[in-house]
Nucleic acid binder design. Structure first.
Lengths: 228, 228
DNA sequence: TAGATTGTTAATCGATTAACAATC
DNA sequence: TAGATTGTTAATCGATTAACAATC
C-alpha cells in the first residue's frame, strides 16, 4: 500500500520530454550490449556510444529509479526493464491504422513494432481498390467499420497514414470513436480535444533539417574554395 | 557584390534547431492556405492553426527576412518561397537509398518527397532476392555498386532503411563513397566523422512518447476511478 | 484616428552542463 | 587504499514568453 502510493507519486512528476525522447535510444543500445553479455555499463560508456554527456545520462537514468554501483555502473537488465516499463513497451497495445497507401503498408509490414509495445491489428481505407486486400496478413477494411470495431475491441491507438487532405477528418472520426492517442504520419497539424494525445512522426521535419544543413554545408565549402 | 556579402553574413548565424524544425510545419500550412486564395496571413492565425505562440511565430518568421505589414500580416507566397529556400526545398537533391525492405519500399513509393527537395534515384541491397527487383520504378542494385555510382552521379544524400545490425556498416560505406549527409531510419546511433551530417528519423522515439503518454493517461484515469 | 499587427528588447523558464561530495 | 564512478546541488545557457514601442 505504501509502496503503491510512492509509485503514484513518482509518476505524478512528469518526465521532461527531451529525457523521454532519449529513452528509446538507451533501450536500443542496452539491448545491443546485452547480447555481448556485459552485465554492467557505466554512464560514461553510454554517453560515448550515443554521443551524449555522461552527466545527462546519469540524470536521465536517475528518473528510472535504478541505482548504479560506483566503479561498476548500472545493471543493464535492470535498466532495460525499468525503461521498457516507463515507455510501456513491456505491454502490447493494439492499434488501428487508417490509410493503406505505401507508408501504411510499410508500417503494416514492420513487425518490429511489437517489440516496442505496438500491435497493429487492423487497417482501414475508403478507397474501394484497397478495401478487401490483405497486406502483411492484415485485411484492409472499409472506414465505416472503424467506429464499431474500436468500441468492440477497446482499441486506444489510431495511426494516420492517409494523405494530408484526409487526415483531419480521419482524426475526428477517431476521436468520436473513442480513440485516445493518435500517431500522426500526415504532415498536417491535427486539431483534437485537449485530452486526446497526438504524437507526430514528422518525417518532413526531419527531412527539412537534413536538406537545410546539407545545403549550408555545401555553400560554406564553395565559399571557402572561392576565397582561395 | 555587397548584397552577396550580406547574404553570406546572414547565413553564418545558424538557425536555432527548434525554429528550423517548425519551418516545415509553416510551409505545409501556408501551402494549404494559399489554395484558399488568401494572400496575407497574420502570425496570430498561424499560431492558432499550429497551436503555437504568436510571438514565437513572428520570431521564427523574422529569420526568413520576410517583413510583415502591420494590420495585414505576411505575404503567404513570400513566406513559402523564403522558407523553401532556407530548407533548400526549391532545389531537387538526388539521394540513394540502402535497404529495400518494407520501409525502404515505402519511401521509394512516396513520390511526395520530390516536393520537399528530395529525389530518390537508386536503391541498393545485398539480399539476392531483392536485387534486380523494381520497386516503384526504381531497380534495386547490389550494394557493391554503391561507391562507384555515388562518385559518378555526385550524390550527396544517403538514406538508410536497413535493419540495425547492418546500419553502421552501411554508414561507413556511405562515408567512404563520399556521401555527405545520411537520413537514418534505423534505430541505432550511427558513428561517423564530425563533418558528415546525420539526421535520424527516430520513429521509435516518437512511438515511445506515444506509448508512455497513453499509459500515464490511462493510469491516471484508473486512479481517479478508484478514488470514488 | 483607433486599433490591429509587427518587430525588438527584456524577463522567465527549463534543460544542459559544471562542480563536488559520497561510495564501493 | 586509490581511483573510478555515482548522484545531487549549483551555474550556465538558450529557447520561450512577456512587454511595449513602431507602423500602417
Amino acid at each position: 500500500m505504501l509502496e503503491n502510493e510512492s509509485n503514484i507519486e513518482k509518476e505524478i512528476k512528469m518526465i521532461p520530454e527531451p529525457t523521454l525522447r532519449r529513452f528509446p535510444q538507451y533501450i536500443h543500445l542496452l539491448k545491443r550490449l546485452r547480447k555481448e553479455s556485459t552485465q554492467y555499463i557505466s554512464s560514461t560508456t553510454i554517453a560515448d556510444e550515443l554521443e551524449l554527456d555522461s552527466i545527462q545520462v546519469r540524470k536521465d537514468l536517475a528518473i528510472t529509479g535504478v541505482v548504479g554501483k560506483p566503479k561498476l555502473g548500472f545493471d543493464i537488465d535492470e535498466l532495460i526493464s525499468a525503461l521498457s516499463n516507463i515507455l510501456n513497451w513491456d505491454n502490447s497495445t493494439d492499434a488501428f491504422l487508417v490509410g493503406a497507401g505505401s507508408l501504411g503498408s510499410a508500417l503494416l509490414g514492420y513487425k518490429n513494432f511489437n517489440q516496442y509495445g505496438l500491435n497493429i491489428v487492423a487497417a482501414f481505407d475508403n478507397d474501394p481498390n484497397k478495401i478487401g486486400k490483405t497486406i502483411s496478413g492484415i485485411e484492409v477494411l472499409p472506414l465505416e467499420k472503424f467506429g464499431n470495431m474500436v468500441e468492440r475491441m477497446k482499441v486506444h491507438i489510431g495511426i494516420i497514414t492517409a494523405p494530408p487532405e484526409a487526415a483531419q477528418k480521419i482524426a475526428e472520426v477517431m476521436v468520436q470513436s473513442g480513440i485516445q492517442a493518435i500517431w500522426n504520419f500526415s504532415s498536417i497539424h491535427l486539431k483534437v480535444p485537449f485530452n486526446i494525445i497526438v504524437e507526430d512522426a514528422l518525417l518532413t521535419q526531419s527531412l527539412g533539417v537534413l536538406t537545410h544543413t546539407l545545403s549550408e554545408k555545401l555553400k560554406k565549402e564553395i565559399a571557402v574554395l572561392e576565397k582561395q
